[in-house]
Amino acid sequence: MPGIDECLLEAMRLPGARGAALVDWTSGLALGAVGEAPGGDQEAAAVEAAELARLAAEQHAFAPDPGEEEGGGGGGGRGRGEGEGDAGHDVGDDPPVEDLIISNRDSYHVLRFVRTSFDSSVCLHLWLARAEGNLALARIRLGEMAGRLVLE
């Protein structure tokens, strides 16, 4: 049962890994970081990764909300809460997005959302050198790590 650092160190063992971080995408805080920071500044990298993750998790085009249909359209805030009743309490659910991949000329970034049973908003951010990195492998492994981090 790994902790945060063990999880990040495991991610760093992937071929081509340059840096890994666990980022809270609501606050922009890096809860852990190992290796190099993209751009050289760990704090700034976490904030920017968080911003990207938040956009993907909240934009309806990328993350359609299953509970949205009946309320939808321009109906506005009125009636939505009343209609949903108690369901509102379960809405702290995770976004349907699993991961985000950015491919640069010389590197890859993979952001993997971590699904937790408690209300959190964290993702793993892995930075890979493009020449050595294996994107498919990294994506699969990150998914496994994200699961093991919180589900043992």
Binding site: E58, D65, G67, R80, G81, A87, G88, H89, V91, G92
Partner: peptide
């Protein structure tokens, strides 16, 4: 967003 809806639901209830 879904989390904001949760906040609104608590306020409405």
């Amino acid at each position: 967003t879904s989390r904001q809806r949760a906040v609104l639901a608590v306020l409405a209830e």
